[in-house]
Computed example of a mutant assay.
Amino acid sequence: MMRLKVFLLCGLLSLFGHAHADAVAALKDFVREAKSGRAQFSQTVTSPDGSRTKVTSGSFEFQRPNQFRFAYLPPTEQLIVADGQKVWMFDPGLNQASSHRMSQALGATPAALLAGGNLERDFTLKALPSKGGLDWVQALPKQADGGFQSLKVGFKGRDLAALEIVDGFGQSSRLDFSALALNPVLAADRFRFTLPAGADLLEQ
């Protein structure tokens, strides 16, 4: 579940036409032009059999390369911060934090797609049919990653609108973004994590 969240970020063009080609271009433009960003998100996680769902929400910020911050709101409050070297995860309810080396935690993941450094190196992109008012792009990691089965990115015009992820166990997660702002000036301390007093730390 935690790995799925860190994830909180990509042939058939001739069949699907120009709008779908534009979705691939929109993703490439986003990765090339968005050096930083912030947005609100709503995340819906669905069990593999579709019988259970869980909805959470929060804010997302990123700054290239490899810095990001997911802040989940109560009642499932949680903080995930990447400072470029490590990814920190903090659960206020448990008063417990964990840290992972960036190379371990990021890889070819959705977070790497949105905040990482090299889209073309890490992913193969394929256009998909429009669905739900969005144009979709599938991002397939060039190196096998057991953490997830598939990743799709949805655009409304040129604007990033959604991510759909299926993890290695068949659990799906969709993040819908709103109030997206590109290239804002973000304070450096947004991507630093300080262990709260009395919190336990698990380092991996």
Rank of each mutant, 00 (worst) to 15 (best):
A21R: 11
P65L: 05
H18D: 12
P48F: 07
R38Q: 15
H20T: 12
A108E: 12
R64T: 12
A19M: 11
Q96R: 11
M89A: 12
T109L: 03
Q63A: 13
P75Y: 14
D22T: 11
T46L: 09
A97Q: 12
V81E: 00
P48I: 12
A25G: 03
R64M: 06
Y72I: 08
A108G: 07
N95D: 08
T56D: 04
A112W: 13
V45M: 05
T44L: 10
H100D: 05
T53S: 11
P75N: 08
A23T: 09
F30D: 00
D83T: 10
Q85Y: 13
F30K: 00
A19G: 07
E33S: 09
T46N: 01
A111L: 06
N66Y: 14
P48E: 09
L27Q: 01
Q67C: 06
S36A: 15
A19F: 08
A105L: 04
P74G: 04
L114W: 01
Q85W: 10
I80V: 15
D29W: 08
G37D: 00
L94T: 08
Q63F: 05
M102N: 10
F41H: 00
G58S: 07
K28M: 03
V31C: 02
T56H: 02
F68M: 09
K86R: 14
L94F: 08
H100G: 01
A21T: 10
L113E: 02
Q67T: 12
T44A: 01
F62Y: 04
T46Y: 03
